[in-house]
Amino acid sequence: MHYATLHYAQTATPGNPGAAVLAEECALAIAYNGLNQAVMMVTPQDLEEFVVGFSLSGGLIEQIDDLRDLRLHGSGNARHAEVQVSPRAFWAIKQQRRQLAGHSGCGLCGVEALQQALPQLAPLQPVALPPDSHFHGLRERIAEAQVLARDSGALHAAAFVDGSGAIALCREDIGRHNALDKLIGALALQRRQARDGFAVVTSRCSLELIHKAVRAGIGTLVSLSAPTSLTVEWARRHNLNLIHLPHRSAPRVYSPAPALPDHNG
């Protein structure tokens, strides 16, 4: 190997601003009423919105009013979120933890984990598909809205397009689930109706994103990458409009299912 041909990247510093800018990452520990729930690796922006969205999209709370207080502590690569929730929500959180603990001897742990991966979700009330005009230049508009990714790349985004077709919110994170959670938290904290627009994710459309969208009451989810057959199945089952926006062709609607041709006419 000719080592002289290798180029070593340097991280940007005040004395070396021309070096590569890297995306930030930190560990965020989340506790509910003093009970440790999770440690997430996140981009340290919009953390309050992330915790709210994580709580709603994960079914830990049913509505924003179940959240009584939220305090963030720490700095650098170690952060803490202390969340106070209603007694009803805290009881439900403890029930979830109890179901997933202590069953490894009889194999029930796998059953419970499968239920967590394929949860029972209430179907959405169907909403109309967005107008075609709302997709014009959408990829380019989202790229302009990604302020953090403009410097570092390596960040996913989740955006909310309002009823007028404008990008009203854009949240970014190293994790695609985190980006959507931040957006869900922002919608909840701003008391915006998710059904009045649609969400766009720049990442692969995994099944977990379908779960989060349905729990958050998002009627339409647009992905910049093609969905899998399972995500399409779940979107149709739960009345979630699922649309893929390819690079150079028209939007493709996967859910609702396309109407069958009428051969009787």
Rank of each mutant, 00 (worst) to 15 (best):
P130G: 07
A101Q: 11
S86L: 12
L70S: 01
L108C: 15
G76A: 10
A89H: 02
P131G: 04
E112V: 07
L108F: 15
P119K: 03
H136T: 14
L108T: 04
R97Q: 15
L138W: 12
S104E: 14
H136I: 14
G105Y: 02
P119F: 01
F90V: 03
E82M: 10
S133T: 12
Q115V: 02
D69A: 15
A101R: 10
G110R: 03
A81G: 05
A122E: 13
S86E: 02
R88H: 05
S104L: 14
A117Y: 02
A122R: 07
L129H: 04
L100N: 05
L114Y: 08
P87T: 07
W91A: 15
A128W: 00
Q84R: 11
P123A: 09
H73V: 06
L118I: 10
A78V: 13
H136L: 14
H136G: 07
A78W: 01
R79P: 02
Q84K: 09
I93S: 00
R97Y: 00
D132S: 15
A128Q: 05
C106W: 08
H134E: 01
L138N: 06
W91H: 14
S104W: 14
S86G: 03
R97D: 11
A113N: 03
P87Y: 08
R139V: 05
A101I: 03
Q116T: 08
R79K: 10
A128V: 07
G137Y: 00
Q116W: 06
V111G: 01
L118Y: 09
Q99W: 13
D69L: 05
C109M: 10
C109D: 11
L72G: 05
Q96F: 04
L100M: 12
Q84Y: 00
I93Y: 06
G76F: 05
F135E: 09
A89C: 03
F135I: 08
V85M: 03
K94M: 11
Q96Y: 03
K94V: 08
A92Y: 09
Q84V: 13
L118E: 08
L118F: 14
H136E: 15
L138V: 12
Q116F: 04
V111E: 04
V111K: 13
R68D: 01
L124G: 09
R97P: 01
A101D: 01
Q99E: 12
P119T: 07
G105S: 13
R98G: 04
L72W: 03
L67K: 04
P123C: 05
H73I: 07
P119A: 10
Q115C: 10
R79S: 04
F90W: 09
R71M: 09
L100R: 10
F135W: 11
A122K: 11
I93L: 13
L108S: 13
F90M: 14
G74K: 14
H103V: 08
S86N: 06
F135C: 12
A81P: 07
A89S: 10
P130K: 03
Q120D: 15
Q120I: 08
E82G: 12
A92E: 04
G137I: 00
D132Y: 00
H134P: 02
H136Q: 15
R98M: 12
Q96R: 14
Q115H: 13
I93W: 09
V127H: 04
G102T: 07
